[in-house]
Amino acid sequence: MSDKGTGPHPAAQDGTLVRIRKLTRVFDVSKPWLNRVIERLPRARLTAVSDVSFDIPERGVYALVGESGSGKSTIGKMVVGLLDPSEGEVRVRDVDLASETDAAKVAAARSEIQMIFQDPYASLNPRWRVRDIIAEPVAARGGDTRGLAERLLEQVGLAAEDAVKYPHEFSGGQRQRICIARALAANPKLIVCDEPTSALDVSVQAQVLNLMSDLREEYGLTYLFISHDLTVVQHMADTIGVLYLGRLVEEAASDALFETPRHPYTQMLFAAAPRMDAYGREVEPPKGEIPDPINPPAGCAFHPRCPIAVARCKSERPEMRRVGGARVACHLAE
């Protein structure tokens, strides 16, 4: 696949671990063929992710935030290779996962990326012992698994003796620790974390987030951290990308973003998020809801809800451009 003007990627040199360029994913959401014929319906396509580009620096925490349906999980799945992009590329160091022809290179790059999911219940095989769950990715590659699970369990704050137990014997937070141990077993560089603590209580969430921070220091890990919870993202991320209807609308360093959100959607999102020190505040809640992703608005997709939209916003899609230290896709942002 060509680079479409973004040039070759001397990735390793400038400390970028993952480069994502013009990533797009379209789903066919048509009704079955027969229904379409009878009801005279056209094919329906849903663009879940559209033209998304960003870099994840080595040892950094890059967070994607956005409301339900904004495309966060779809991006995460394309990064780990659970979904193929419709267009665009995911490059790990200098390997383009989709177009690289050397299978060994692709396999090596893939094994450096692991994923942790929101639901620690669904992602663990209930009939396997914890030892086998954790060692499986290594065993599959014919690696040495002796003592591996026991060591990793201690690493994530559980006991070596837990290796012989089954998933149902653990609480939600403990299961998420097992998922983390399994991800670590493959000795990854990057862990894609899709809402890793959304199913957990705050006190358990604190334990898991602290663990993730510790492991990052210890192993020099890089995280792609997906969450809809702004307070969690603010706590964890170095850089934040804000998604709206499948597009990146703003990207900035975490502190800068919270200090000066520049895109009107980011501003709306931050104003709406519940704040712990909010008692007594009366705010005007945001207007409208996220539009139908099958027929997104023309121009800037946010224009129907945007308080500062002008005529141009309805017809012309804003390109990502640099504003201050941030990248913003808004005609009016400054």
């Binding site: 006190s203 334990q207 987030l209 602290n210 706590h235």
Partner: peptide
Amino acid sequence: VLGAPRHPYTVGLMGSTPGASRGQRRLTQI
């Protein structure tokens, strides 16, 4: 209760909540 919690559990709950312990590198764990 949220601004000046008295019960140790409420104190812990507030400390574990990311938004309430802004700027802290680590969250307080119960």
